[in-house]
Each structure stands twice: as C-alpha cells, then as structure tokens.
Design a binder for these strands. Structure first.
Ligand SMILES: [Zn+2]
Ligand SMILES: [Zn+2]
Ligand SMILES: [Zn+2]
Ligand SMILES: [Zn+2]
Lengths: 165, 165
DNA sequence: CATTGAAATGTTATAATTTAACGTTTCCTT
DNA sequence: AAGGAAACGTTAAATTATAACATTTCAATG
C-alpha cells in the first residue's frame, strides 16, 4: 500500500499537474496489468484527456479533443473507452453532471464521495469512513444490502469560499 | 411536527397505496399554500402520476400518461411541472436514474439519501443524521461548504434479499 | 367590469447524452 | 497461418432535456 495518492483534497492552483497526469497514467498501466485488461492507446488517450483537469468532463468534450487529435472518432468510441475505464476503476461517472472524472485512488475499492465546487468546478474525492458507516447504519435500519453508492456533494471549496483562505 | 410520514422505509407490498397518494397530494396542497405557490391542476396531476408507485419515474413516462389522459402534452410541459415540484420540495430527481420520485417528507428540509432496490425498483428515502454528519465531517476536513447533496444507494431491499424475510 | 401585467401553459424545434446494431480490423492463441 | 475474441469504426436512432416564442389564464388594480 505504498502507492502514491495523486491528490487527496482540492488541488492547489499551482500544483504540478503534469505530475498528476503522469501518475494517473502510470497507475492505470499498473491497475490494468494487474487486472489483465488492455489499456490500448485509445483508452490511454481518453484517460489522459479525462485527466486534463481536476474537473468532470463530458463525453462530448472528450470526443472533440479526440477529433482535434486528428482521430476521426464518433460517440461510441468515447463511451466505450469510458465504460472500460469505469469498469477498471480508473474513472468515475459524476451522476449529477453527466460527466466523467479521473479517479485518484484507483486501487482503493471503496470510494465514498466526491465534493464538487460549484465556483471553480474542481472536485475532491474523499474516502471517509464516517460517510460509509452512516450509509451502512441507515441500510441496516431498513434491512438493505448496499451494492453501490453515489455520493456527490455540491458547494464551495476552501479557495473559493471567500476572503479568508 | 405532528405530520404524517407517508412511508419511512420500503413499503409493504400490500400497503394501502391509495392512502399514500392521498396523503402526498394533501401535503402538497399544504406545502404550496404555506409557500404561496400555485399547485395548478396540471402540476397536481403530474405529482399524482409521480406517486403512482414508490419507484422513480422518467419524465417521458409521465408524458405518456398525460397523453393517455387526453392531454395534448409535450416534453416541456412535464419538465416545467417537475421543476416546480422539485423547487417546492415535493419531488426529488434521482440522478443515477434520470428519474423522478415523490418526496415522502416534503416539509423536512434535509433529505439525506435514497435507497434504491435494484430488484423491485422501489425506493426508500432516509434522513439519517449519521450520513449527514459523515458528510459534514468530510467537508470540514477539506474546508468545504456544503450546499446540496446527492446520496443514492443501490442494492437490495429486505423483501428482495432472499428467503428469510 | 375592463385593463393589464405576470405567471402558466402550448407549441415547435433543437440540443445534449447515450445506446443499438452491424461491419471491419487488430491481436492473441493455437 | 488459421481461428476466434476483443477492440474499434460507422451509421443510425433512442433517450433526456432545453430554447424560443405564442397563447392563455389569472389575479390585482383602477
Ligand atoms: Zn493535478
Ligand atoms: Zn472552488
Ligand atoms: Zn404507497
Ligand atoms: Zn426490492
């Protein structure tokens, strides 16, 4: 478990983002190798595009970028790559935005929630056991068996929260 | 706070659902009166249709039902009514399903989460403080100010969970 | 009661997101 | 090299949602 977390909370505006991308791609290679899944050039490129920022990106935005690459791509190309990346745990779908986000802890099975700043658009992914346990407790109360969770919190990040930061 | 909760967990398959609908509509009248908002016949009818079951329903399914009523409706009609009902707190959007669900506690500001049974499709809405506090704690850790939350849990309800129920 | 402005609804068209279906190519295994 | 599966290309369509503008309803005012 000596793996590096790319960014655990909101990224600093002047962090070395190229390093985020490199790390994400390196982890993807590793994860796919472990799972025996093929990270093809196309899938790798889509993941790289997803990681262009710490913001969720729509499928069609990815498609545009692919086309800019000179790749004569259509919607299914992007959706298939995204499906693969999601199955591999490398990308999350942000349900409340119809958009996709690179996972910063792809080896970590239980994501709990993402915090979305509605000012800057950046996202922080958090694996908080308090949220997990809260959900489990609620589930227990009604005899529910949890299989998957969508936890998406909108609000403002520290940097965007006003003067005192 | 002596108000009746329509159903707090998963409804029994043989509960009196007509009573759910009646109660939901009565509460809607009350809520709208209090807020000084107009629950027009159309909006009331859409709410009634949303409450046809304890399952999320898509906008176009509602549209079909309106058309069956003889109402020559189009998509914007439904979306506008849904928007009104959501602003009034009478309906929730289920982000992970692109569908809409009648709120069973419309006077209760802080919904926390909905549990969706992927077998029967029924939904239970839960206001669990443990989840709330977990989210607040996570937010505090990263200096985030929460404005709204999407918590949608998929799994199996007690009734659908197997033999011993 | 008539006027009038705002809210609600009707109507047409289109945008945005996602998937189905089928053909072709690539790649791994034998 | 042959065969089969996986990946990708391509066309079309389904699903979900909104923009824009016209018409109607409604409540308040004079
Ligand atoms: Zn970064
Ligand atoms: Zn921000
Ligand atoms: Zn019921
Ligand atoms: Zn069930």
């Amino acid at each position: 478990m000596a793996r590096k977390t790319i960014s655990t909370a909101f990224p600093s505006p002047r962090h070395d983002h190229a390093a985020c991308v490199d790390e994400a791609l390196a982890q993807a290679e590793r994860v796919c190798a472990e799972q025996g899944r093929r990270l093809t050039p196309l899938r790798r490129r889509v993941l790289e595009l997803v990681w262009q920022s710490h913001r969720p990106v729509t499928a069609y935005a990815l498609l545009e970028r692919l086309v800019q690459d000179g790749h004569r791509a259509q919607a299914p190309t992007v959706y298939r790559s995204l499906e693969f990346l999601m199955e591999s745990g490398l990308v999350h779908r942000v349900e409340s935005m119809n958009a996709y986000l690179g996972c910063n802890q792809p080896w970590h099975g239980h994501d709990v929630g993402i915090f979305i700043c509605r000012v800057c658009g950046d996202v922080a992914e958090l694996s908080d056991t308090a949220i997990s346990r809260g959900i489990e407790r609620g589930a227990d109360r009604i005899g529910f068996t949890v299989e998957s969770r969508v936890v998406e919190i909108s609000g403002t990040c520290r940097a965007c929260s006003g003067a005192c930061n």
